[in-house]
């Protein structure tokens, strides 16, 4: 089971722009490689990454097989209110890996 890592501030001033750094361990199997017997290895990648802030979708991304293994993605949000930032990684096989972090906005 892939384990996400997220780094973002625990507190921020209202209106402050903060960076969210994310990464997750995943092979991002491209579907273009062959195994030792010459058979194609089926594609298995994370194809979508979504971010909500207190339930509202604020950023999302669609990924192709050109995204490197153990995908890293960082982006910026504005601190509007205290609450939760939740991230979800959607795997080709239907699994969803999720994690969230609290932020206190003063």
């Amino acid at each position: 089971m892939p384990t996400p890592r997220v780094k973002m501030p625990a507190t921020a001033a209202k209106g402050e722009i903060f960076e969210v750094k994310t990464t997750i361990d995943h092979d991002m199997e491209s579907g273009q490689r062959k195994d030792k017997d010459g058979k194609p290895i089926p594609r298995k990648i994370i194809n979508k990454f979504t971010v909500t802030y207190n339930g509202k979708q604020v950023f999302w991304s669609e990924w192709a097989s050109a995204v490197s293994a153990n995908p890293y993605c960082s982006f910026f949000l504005t601190a509007t209110e205290s609450g939760t930032v939740e991230m979800q990684w959607h795997d080709d096989d239907g699994q969803v890996y999720a994690t969230s972090q609290k932020i206190t906005v003063a």
Partner: peptide, 11 residues
């Protein structure tokens, strides 16, 4: 929200 900047790694 935030600013229009993203980072990632590609093949």
């Amino acid at each position: 929200t935030g600013k229009a900047e993203v980072s990632m790694r590609m093949r």
